[in-house]
């Protein structure tokens, strides 16, 4: 398994040796004074090598490009943005002030999520989806929602669609240098979701707005307003099944206001992903 240069540099050598032996990889999990774990094809493998505090600190330092000031706010929100689709989640001891996290005094765990090497979404399926009505993609974590959104963004911006696409990429997770470099897409990277959606609708006159990980109360109003303004929204949310998805209060509100015309579910079956489409009208 070959990783991105920055990620390779950050990982302790003994961990890297094991990674190179793996044919595929989903996650690299490092914890302070604990054996490291690798997740491949949905299975969690625990190894005997124990990662030390020094190695964790060094890993964080490299992932932050030796510039903590740049990534400080992100670390407080539990992640470090990286290029080329890797998702780095961090956890540790939080320092609170008036119920707000103002610092992480010690990072004790890192989870590096490796993006899918090969994306195999059938072009027929992509062509079949009713994008103009709005879509909500759902799946359990780490199954491929963001990868799906990446593909849809590229798919809609290029011929034969040639649509004006705006991507609200709050965590710098959707933009991929390899996939989007030559795609005519407007990216709002690192903006707060609400402001980015409003700015995109007002200033960029998009046909579609693509947005990752919705579901919070703050997301509901801008997305409904966006749909009512005539801009279709394509989003993703965490849920294992469609039933679970519509049980979520905010998603249900958007469903009743007909923000999305259809729902795309992703399930991991062994090493393959299965995509299902459900029309919003079918949901009671």
């Amino acid at each position: 398994m070959i990783l991105d240069t920055l990620i390779e540099k950050s990982i302790p050598f003994d961990v890297l040796k094991k990674i190179r032996e793996m044919p595929s990889l989903n996650e690299i999990r490092l914890r302070k004074d604990c054996p490291f774990c690798l997740v491949a094809d949905g299975k969690n493998y625990v190894f005997s090598y124990v990662t030390t505090k020094k190695e964790i600190d060094q890993c964080i330092n490299i992932l932050c490009k030796n510039s903590v000031h740049t990534y400080y706010e992100f670390i407080n929100q539990g992640y470090i943005p990286t290029d080329n689709g890797y998702k780095v989640g961090v956890c540790g001891k939080a320092v609170l002030e008036k119920k707000n996290i103002i610092n992480i005094s010690e990072i004790t765990g890192i989870n590096i999520r490796v993006p899918a090497q090969k994306v195999s979404i059938s072009s027929d399926f992509l062509a079949f989806l009713p994008y103009s009505k709005g879509l909500l993609v759902y799946s359990a974590p780490n199954v491929g929602k963001t990868t799906f959104l990446k593909c849809v963004a590229a798919h809609l911006s290029l011929p034969p669609y040639n649509k004006k696409v705006c991507v609200v990429d709050c965590k710098n997770e959707i933009y991929s240098d390899t996939l989007h470099k030559k795609c005519p897409i407007d990216f709002f990277i690192g903006y707060p979701k609400y402001e980015a959606i409003e700015m995109a609708v007002r200033n960029m006159s998009p046909d579609f707005i693509i947005c990752d990980e919705i579901g919070l109360t703050d997301d509901v109003t801008p997305l409904i307003e966006c749909k009512n303004s005539g801009v279709s929204v394509i989003c993703s949310a965490h849920a294992d099944t469609l039933n679970d998805l519509v049980k979520r209060k905010n998603i249900l509100e958007m469903q009743t206001k007909k923000t999305f015309g259809g729902y795309v579910g992703i399930k991991l079956e062994k090493t393959n992903r299965r995509y299902t489409f459900t029309d919003a009208e079918e949901i009671q």
């Binding site: 932050c64 030796n66 510039s67 903590v68 000031h69 400080y72 610092n103």
Partner: peptide, 9 residues
């Protein structure tokens, strides 16, 4: 340089 938050920097 690069070891603390923006304000301290």
């Amino acid at each position: 340089l690069g070891k603390s938050n923006k304000q301290d920097q």
